[in-house]
């Protein structure tokens, strides 16, 4: 700003002057207005990288769980990832509840991994988990009647040998935590919506 051609130097503040004059007020106001404008322009350019409306429309999925046979599981695709919905037998539920929490790496009771149905009661026969191993992201195998499903009759991750029990809890192997439970709620007795919690 220190320019030789300036003819009004006497009235304009030098850089070191601390008190703005009335003349400077207009410059400060203009500068502030410009900065506010640039901020408003920047937001659309940042927000456009967020998931678009069609992606968000698939952020939640509804699924009918009534036709899963007892002892079987179905895999749904939710937000690009597999979700396991497993219909557990009474024996499996008993087994899951009988586990001593002290044995667990990630201490959770079976009930803590369930959500209540429309009547407010837990539905222990259905277990919903994200089908991604918490170690390095592989999809664990399911086979309750064979070793392929792991030593604890839950899931077994073939990548690095993590064994999960039928509640999706890590029992053996490198995975640090239990299989993740996605946000979901019971729309009705037979339909769950995965992707959001129940509205309370």
């Amino acid at each position: 700003m220190n320019t030789s051609a300036k003819t009004n130097g006497a009235e304009t503040n030098g850089a070191g002057d601390a008190t703005p004059t009335r003349r400077d007020f207009i410059h400060i106001a203009t500068g502030a207005a410009t900065i506010v404008g640039v901020g408003f322009v920047a937001w659309p350019m940042i927000d456009q990288m967020n998931p678009s409306a069609d992606t968000m429309s698939l952020a939640t999925i509804e699924m009918d769980i009534s036709n899963i046979e007892e002892g079987a599981q179905i895999i749904a695709k939710w937000r690009g990832k597999p979700v396991f919905v497993r219909h557990r037998t009474p024996a499996e539920i008993t087994e899951a509840n009988a586990v001593n929490l002290d044995e667990l790496k990630d201490k959770q009771t079976d009930n803590e991994r369930l959500v209540p149905g429309p009547d407010g009661q837990l539905k222990p026969q259905y277990l919903v988990t994200v089908g991604v191993c918490t170690h390095l992201g592989c999809v664990p195998l399911f086979d309750p009647n064979d070793d392929r499903g792991g030593e604890y009759k839950g899931w077994f991750c073939p990548c690095h040998g993590s064994h999960y029990d039928n509640s999706g809890r890590i029992r053996k192997g490198p995975a640090p935590t239990n299989l993740e439970i996605p946000p979901y709620w019971y729309v009705s007795d037979t339909v769950v919506e995965i992707g959001k919690e129940a509205l309370t």
Partner: peptide, 30 residues
């Protein structure tokens, strides 16, 4: 920004412009 959402393919180019205008956040502006 548009190149982040546009698809240069005869089957998808037109659709991707519509996608930008209808679904991408502020795509209707950009």
């Amino acid at each position: 920004i548009l190149a982040m959402h546009y698809v240069p393919h005869p089957e998808h180019a037109f659709d991707s412009i519509q996608h930008i205008n209808r679904n991408v956040n502020f795509g209707w502006l950009l």
